[in-house]
Nucleic acid binder design. Structure first.
Lengths: 341, 341
DNA sequence: CTTAGCACTCTCATAGTGAGAGTGCTAATT
DNA sequence: AATTAGCACTCTCACTATGAGAGTGCTAAG
């Protein structure tokens, strides 16, 4: 069947280019990928593939390289035969994470490191987003005059702290009473539920105005208004070793992207809508700085609620099979750890 | 006086090279730095300076560039006339920090960012080292079965948390009693004092073995055993704009150095022995990866106790005057914020 | 002690050249 | 009708002059 041959050629070009970023010639394809055809025939096929937008020629008389559309075909095809995953690298990841399962922050940091060293691309890990997290407990310390240090613990093991400025100076005893009240009232609720409730309380409050409660509410409102999650990014030096980043301009681009953590957070957040592993290739990316990069992401869950995202960022010429395997394994491991009672 | 002339020439070469990293020729020195001498004379002086090890010639028939020893002369000379500091940039730093004085972590992160964007080099900031910090309060949450989340607050406003694994499963009520005990016993002491005391207690403990106390001690011992401080590093993309980092090899070096945060922490820690601003130039640096970089650091204090370090890392061809001014201003500001009651 | 003059050295940007790889097209073959 | 061999053509890349430019060191004169 003709289609079959076209696919095989495209597949061969992508595989070859992923291993080695040189334009792929017709002769090379016939030899390395055991086609019983002459280079001339392959040339015709490749010309067709170029017309269809799967391949691209840097210049006449160079071989072909895959376009983003070409990679997309490859990845989608990969997804169909999910069975074949190389377990070796996946094991390495899990071993590295197993030792520190108790500390969620360390766990995520190590995840990003592990992803990067094993894949040789950038490893990223978003901390759990806190709006959906449930509050385990809250605690207040008197810090300086009129300042209270609030500390929250969530079900995922995240500790958030924030220094709140008050008009009056409360004693530690007052604060203990307030935190007792807050714990009895709010523990077990999701952060955004609490926020919503506080807004309601404050509306009513003008009437009833119990000082303890009103103070508690004031403090809590401030405390819950924290910055969005953090992100761990590792592996810049890994990526610099890749031939596609031998260009100074691109290095600057990527290092700017890394420094702008907000961008990365937003990006990963929007990407991780659907469950399971997602792949975004080059120009499919909406952020302009990322048009030459591919991203492989997955969410990790607490119970069956997705709370955070991890992933790998690399050149479009990425070893997608490996990347997908790694991200998938790591996400599943995190989910397991977080979900254990 | 002859010495005077030699100094002026050396000064001129350093200033010129700092502004613009081209080897400096004799003719250029006479013109730009208003010597009433001919290039030939300057050439002789420069040859002398080379013999003395202050200047270096990349190749015959190039101008001279300063050696590390040359920069050292320049910086030491700079220190003598401390009066002249450009206040403009310093203001910018303070303005950026003023808004977030309440949160020590945010403050340090912003410090490192501000230092890097204003200086165009790398900005670094170490969080306060915790051994000498005094404990403000401790709090325990039951997390999972047999796991306790411990949260410490120190005088500097640092919150440390750690998940401790116990043999028995304690209720939140037990934990509250334990934390009350720990607070009454240890609040106000320095962390390393507490550690020392715990060791003593544990020795005695075998005899008296009050379960509450012994449990408290066990938890506390674990909780106090936390990782050393964190470090914020900003400005990689700034640095990549500099001509000395147009070389791929050097970029890799520097990005590896940045990723290895432990190295940076150790480096800055040892550097900040003496008070005030310190400058380490190129080969004076002990770490091999840093031999081509200069570091300007200062400690910041809480009260009169130095607790942390901030600094600027850049090429040996650094605008030392600006860097010193910036680091000094920022350190003084942090000290002020931390020390206010 | 200073300076003018000059030969010398080294770098860097530019242009030219030829090997090598790979293509597209055409005509012959199966 | 599909495949293949043959061939002219194109483009890149590494290599090699080549020459301008900048700056030096040295010598001899001021």
């Amino acid at each position: 069947m003709l289609d079959e041959r076209i696919h095989r050629v495209l597949w061969a070009v992508v595989e070859s280019y992923i291993t080695n970023p040189d334009p792929v010639g017709s002769r090379f394809v016939t030899k390395k990928y055991a086609f019983n055809l002459s280079p001339a025939t392959i040339r015709n096929v490749m010309a067709d593939l170029e017309d269809m937008g799967f391949l691209h020629q840097p210049h006449t008389s160079a071989g072909r390289i895959p376009t983003d559309k070409g990679y997309r075909f490859y990845v989608d095809y990969l997804a169909k035969r999910e069975a074949s995953r190389d377990a070796d690298h996946a094991d390495e990841i899990i071993q590295r994470l197993e030792t520190i399962r108790n500390d969620i922050n360390a766990l995520l940091k190590e995840t990003s490191k592990a992803l990067s060293t094993v894949s040789h691309y950038l490893g990223v890990a978003l901390t759990p987003r806190s709006e959906k997290a449930t509050l385990r407990g809250i605690n207040l310390f008197r810090y300086k005059e009129g300042q209270v240090m609030t500390v929250l613990l969530t079900d995922e093991g995240i500790v958030k702290n924030k220094c709140v400025q008050l008009a009056v100076d409360l004693t530690q005893r007052d604060l203990n009473r307030i935190s007792d009240y807050l714990n009895s009232e709010f523990a077990g609720l999701a952060i955004d539920e609490i926020r919503a409730r506080i807004v309601r309380e404050m509306r009513r409050d003008k009437a009833l105005c119990d000082t303890l409660i009103s103070r508690a509410i004031t403090i809590c409102r401030e405390a819950l208004y924290f910055d969005c999650g953090d992100v761990f990014i590792s592996g810049l030096s890994e990526v610099l070793g890749l031939p596609e980043f031998s260009d100074l301009q691109r290095i600057k681009e990527i290092s700017r992207a890394i420094e702008d953590k907000h961008l990365i957070i937003k990006l990963l957040d929007t990407l991780s809508q659907s469950e399971g592993v997602n792949v975004v290739i080059g120009s499919e990316n909406l952020a302009p700085d990322m048009k030459k990069l591919s991203i492989v992401v997955s969410t990790y869950n607490e119970g069956d609620r997705p709370v955070g995202t991890i992933g790998i960022i690399g050149p479009t010429r990425m070893n997608y099979l490996k990347a997908i395997t790694l991200v998938d394994t790591a996400a599943k491991f995190l989910t397991k750890v977080l979900s254990e009672k």
